[in-house]
Amino acid sequence: MADIGIETTQNVRINFQLASIGERISATLLDLLFFFVIYMILLLVIGLIGKDAVWILFLLVPLMFYSLIFEVFMNGQTPGKKIMKIKVSTVDGSAPTFLNYLIRWMFRLVDISLTYGICGILCIVIGEKGQRLGDILAKTTVIRTKRKVSIENTILVDIPQNYELVFPESRKINEKDLPLFKKVIAQIESMEDPVEKLQFGLRARKNVMEKLGIKTEMQPLEFFKTLIVDYNLIHRNR
């Protein structure tokens, strides 16, 4: 499966696996099934309460915005995407905005509805970033959320007994930086080529060192693990 390199706000390039055509089609079919179930339930409810067709239209209007609503409130996922473990992401690594989701939703009409999905599939296959037309205009793509190497979502780690702060500059670390450090650690540990591993680690270390004002020759893997422990030590009693 093809990867996409996303530049984070720390100027660290993290690779994510693009969702495959099969995964995206499966997610769409699951969403259609979910949509159909909701539709039938609404019809049943309307039939039981004896309301007319106006109520049907009133209740079904929100379903027109099915994917938009779910992606906005479920962090880039619909129920189908969540089951398939894929999600919408921007190509620059920033958090998708409502406008990103709105643009890709609007172009579902061209990518999926009017062309029976042919336009969307062709764009995804031809392009390098797994983007349908709506994704290209919204500057988004769809990635896998399940990585080869699992990453702990928590920022809490055990602090060794008698541990002393290594980098006083760690006080500049933002809580949002911790997931990035964990992703860098996971990627370093997952890389097999020692040269690529070292080059990636040094680049990532250099970028973070410059931001925090740290000078060290510590190995990249140990460096990022130390930053996480330092952060926990600093904030442990707050």
Rank of each mutant, 00 (worst) to 15 (best):
M84F: 05
G50N: 10
R171I: 13
R171H: 09
I159V: 08
L68N: 00
I4S: 05
E189A: 11
A19W: 03
T140E: 03
G47W: 07
N75Q: 12
E192N: 12
D230F: 07
L29V: 10
I46N: 14
E169I: 09
I234N: 05
L32N: 12
K87P: 00
M74N: 10
T140F: 00
K85I: 13
I6G: 02
S170A: 14
V149C: 08
G50M: 09
F58H: 02
D193Y: 08
L122G: 10
E71F: 00
I234K: 05
L43M: 07
I86F: 01
E196D: 15
K197C: 09
G130L: 04
L156R: 07
R236F: 15
G22I: 08
Q131R: 12
V88E: 00
A2P: 15
G213N: 11
I14R: 00
D230T: 07
V184N: 04
A27C: 07
F65V: 08
Q10T: 09
M74H: 03
T141G: 00
M106T: 12
I121N: 00
I6Y: 03
L68A: 03
P194F: 13
C119A: 15
G130P: 01
V157A: 06
I121R: 01
K129W: 07
S20I: 01
M1F: 10
I4Y: 00
V37E: 01
V157Y: 01
E210C: 02
S89Y: 11
R203L: 11
L44E: 09
D3W: 11
M191C: 09
M84R: 05
I41L: 13
L59W: 10
L44M: 11
D193F: 08
F36R: 03
V166F: 11
I69P: 00
I136E: 04
E217I: 09
I121Q: 05
N207Q: 14
R203S: 14
I185H: 00
F223M: 14
L32T: 04
D135L: 00
L178Y: 00
P160I: 13
L102Y: 08
D193Q: 10
K148P: 04
C119Y: 13
S113F: 14
L221E: 14
E210T: 13
L212R: 05
L202C: 04
L48C: 04
M191W: 09
L42W: 06
E217T: 10
N15R: 10
M40C: 02
M218L: 15
